[in-house]
Design a protein around this nucleic acid. Structure first.
Lengths: 359, 359
DNA sequence: GCATTTTTGAGGTACGTCCCTCATTTTGCG
DNA sequence: CGCAAAATGAGGGACGTACCTCAAAAATGC
C-alpha cells in the first residue's frame, strides 16, 4: 500500500494537521518540525495522490484560448486540435473556451483580454502578433493573477509565463538545409514567399533560412521575400510571374500561408515534382500536395501535441506547479511523403465497455 | 457548476443507485431506464469526474516493463525515459517496475513473464524479439487478463493489445529518400549496416530503404547489408575494409546500433562531413556525432513521448478505456544538426512553491 | 390475483486530501 | 515566573464517485 498523509504523521510523530500544514506550505510550523515531516516523507517515499488532491480542492480550470479569426487552414486546424484536447480534458475539470478576435484589430483583442478576468477564467493561451497595446493587456492580466501563455508565435517582451511552439529561427534553418541539400551542388535560384500576419515568425524563419544558405550553400541565390498578404490571388500572380521570368528558380520556400494557391500555380505550370518546394505546417492541403508531389518537404509542429501541451501548461501555471520540460517541448518536425503520419482514425477506439458515453 | 451524478438522477427521475448502475454498466436495469439516464447525461452534458472516480476505485496500477539487458545506449535511454515517466505518473497511482532479461535467452524471458501475474501486476510492456516461446507466454498473460503492449519492435502474431513505436518500414523509406536526395543525381554506392538482435526491425527498415532506392534513385548502388552483431570491433573492421576497397561509397545507412564505433571509423579515415551518413535513434552519442558532422541525419522516435505513451496505454488497457489515437502515435522524426532539439534542462522547473518535495 | 422475479430506491461507507475550527501545549520574552 | 504568542493536536465536513446491502416497488408469469 502506498503511504498516505496518516502514515507520514505517524512516522514523523506529529499530527495530521501538522503534516497538512507542511505539505501545503501553510504558516505556523517550526523549522524543526518541517524537517521532521519532510524526512518522514522521504523515508516512506510518500507521493501526494493527485487524484485525491484535485478532488478535495474541487478546483475548476476555466481557460481561455484566444486565436485570430483568420480563416486559414492552420488556425482552423489548431482550433480543432484545441477543441479536441479540451473535450478530453473536461474529465479532469478543464473547461476550455475558444475566443476569436479580428486579426488586424489589436484594440479588439485588448478589449477581449480585458474582459476575461471577470468571467471566471484562470488562464489564457494566446496567439497574436505583439503590439504595445497587447503588451499592456497581458501585463494587466498577469497582475490579476491570470497566467498567460503564448501560442505558436512567441511574445517575449510581454512577460508571458510560457511559450508553446517551435523555435522559428531553427525551423528556418532546417528549411534551409533541406533546400540546400535537396537542390544539390549546381547553382540555382530560390524563391521565398511570406505574408505578414505573424510578422515575427516570418522574420525569424527568414533569418534562419538565410543563415544556413549563406554559410553552407553559396551556389544558391536566394531572392528577396515576396509578400503575399494572405491573398491567394496575389500569390498566384506573383509566383507565376517570377517563375516565367526567372528560369533559374529551382526551389521555393513558402514561409507563410497560402499553400492552396501555391499548389495550383505549380500544377498549372506543369512544375509538380520539378521544383524543391518547402513550406511550413502540415495542414490537410499541404498533406495532399505532399502526396501529389507539388510540395517536397514540410517543416511542421504537431498540433495535437501543441494543444495538449497548452492545457497541461495552463493547468500547471494555474496551480503554480512545475512543468515536465521534455514533454512540453514542441519539436520541429520534418515531413516528407515517406514519413507522412497516417491520419489518426478518430473513431479508433479500442474499448469494449458498453456504457462509455460518460467515461 | 458541473453536473454530478446527483443531477443526473434528479433529471432522469431515478435514484442515485440506478444512475450508478447505468454508468458502470451493472446489470439489473431496464432498457427504458437506461435510455432515460443516458438522455439526462446528454442533456446535462455530464462528464464523469475521473479524479473522483479513480479515487473511489482506489485502483493501483502496477505495471511491468520488460527490456533486454543489452547495454546499448538506446535501451539505456529508453529505460531512463520510462523511469522518469514512471516517477511522475506515481502521483496518479502508477507503479512502474523495470525488468531486464538476458537478451539472447527467450526461455529466461518467458519465465520472467510467467512470474508476473502472481506479483500484483495489471499490465506488461515488452521489448523483445518475437519467438514461439514468447508467443505462448504472451497468450498466457492475456488469458490471465493482463494487457500486453509491444514496445519499439512490434509483436504482431502474439495477440499483443497494442504496439507503441514507429512503422519501421516507413522509417526505412524515410532514410532512403534522405539518402537519395542528399547524395544527388551522380552515381554512388551506399553501405548498409545492421545487426541482428531485433531482427524484425532491421528487415523492415531494409525493405523500406530498398523500396525507395530502387524506385526513385536508380543511380545509387546499395550494397548488401553488413552484419555487425552488435560488436563495435567487427563494425570498425568491416566498415574500414569496405571504405578502403570500394571508393565509390558515398553514403552509409546504419540501421542498427554501434554508432560510437561508426563515428570513430569515419573520423579515423578523415571522412567526417564527406559522406552522407544516416542512422536511427537519437542517443547521446548520435547527437554528438550529428553536431560533429560525422552523421548527417537521424531517423528517430521521441523516447520521452514513447515512455509516456506506454504508461497511458497500459493504464487505458487496464481500465478497458479508449485511447486517443493521435496522442499515442509515435512519429518518425528526422533530425538534422539544424533541428536538433535542445536537451531539456531537467531542473527547469518554473514553480515557486516552497514545499514541493511531494508535489 | 398471487407468487416470483426483476427492477428500483434509500442509505451508508470508503477513497486520500484539503481546509476549517477550537482547544491545548509549547515556546519565547520580559 | 508569568503571560502572550506561536505551534501543534483533535476532529470533522467536503469533494464526486464506487460499491455494498437491504428493503420496497414494479413487472412478469401462471
Amino acid at each position: 500500500m502506498r503511504p498516505t498523509v496518516n502514515d507520514i504523521a505517524r512516522e514523523a510523530g506529529v499530527s495530521l494537521a501538522t503534516v497538512d500544514r507542511v505539505l501545503n506550505a501553510r504558516p505556523g510550523v517550526r523549522e524543526k518540525t518541517i524537517r521532521a515531516v519532510n524526512d518522514a516523507i522521504v523515508k516512506l517515499g510518500y507521493v501526494r495522490d493527485l487524484t485525491a488532491a484535485n478532488l478535495a480542492r474541487s478546483r475548476n480550470y476555466r481557460m481561455a484560448v484566444v486565436l485570430p479569426d483568420t480563416e486559414s487552414q492552420f488556425v482552423q486546424t489548431l482550433a480543432d486540435a484545441l477543441t479536441d484536447a479540451g473535450s478530453i480534458a473536461a474529465a479532469a475539470r478543464m473547461d476550455l473556451r475558444l475566443h476569436r478576435f479580428p486579426a488586424e484589430d489589436p484594440h479588439a483583442l485588448a478589449a477581449l483580454l480585458t474582459s476575461l478576468p471577470g468571467r471566471g477564467y484562470s488562464g489564457v493561451a494566446l496567439m497574436a502578433p505583439e503590439t504595445p497595446i497587447l503588451r499592456d493587456a497581458i501585463r494587466a492580466l498577469r497582475a490579476k493573477g491570470l497566467p498567460v501563455v503564448a501560442l505558436v508565435s512567441d511574445l517575449p517582451n510581454t512577460g508571458r509565463d510560457h511559450f508553446i511552439g517551435t523555435d522559428n529561427r531553427a525551423a528556418g534553418r532546417t528549411a534551409g538545409v533541406l533546400m540546400g541539400r535537396f537542390l544539390g551542388p549546381a547553382p540555382a535560384q530560390v524563391l521565398v514567399l511570406g505574408q505578414s500576419l505573424l510578422a515575427r515568425d516570418m522574420i525569424e524563419r527568414r533569418r534562419g533560412f538565410d543563415e544556413v544558405m549563406l554559410r553552407d550553400f553559396p551556389q544558391l541565390d536566394v531572392l528577396p521575400s515576396l509578400e503575399t498578404h494572405g491573398s491567394g490571388q496575389t500569390l498566384r500572380q506573383v509566383v507565376a510571374e517570377r517563375l516565367t521570368n526567372a528560369p533559374g528558380v529551382r526551389g521555393i520556400y513558402a514561409m507563410g500561408d497560402g499553400h492552396r494557391a501555391l499548389t495550383q500555380v505549380i500544377d498549372d505550370m506543369g512544375l509538380s515534382g520539378k521544383l524543391v518546394v518547402i513550406c511550413h505546417e502540415l495542414t490537410p492541403h499541404v498533406r495532399q500536395a505532399l502526396e501529389g508531389g507539388e510540395i517536397t518537404a514540410v517543416i511542421t509542429q504537431n498540433l495535437g501535441h501543441l494543444a495538449r501541451s497548452t492545457l497541461r501548461v495552463l493547468r500547471a501555471k494555474a496551480d503554480n506547479l512545475p512543468l515536465d520540460a521534455g514533454q512540453e517541448q514542441i519539436r520541429i518536425e520534418i515531413v516528407l511523403r515517406e514519413n507522412l503520419p497516417p491520419i489518426p482514425d478518430s473513431a479508433a477506439f479500442s474499448a469494449a465497455e458498453p456504457a462509455d458515453t460518460a467515461a
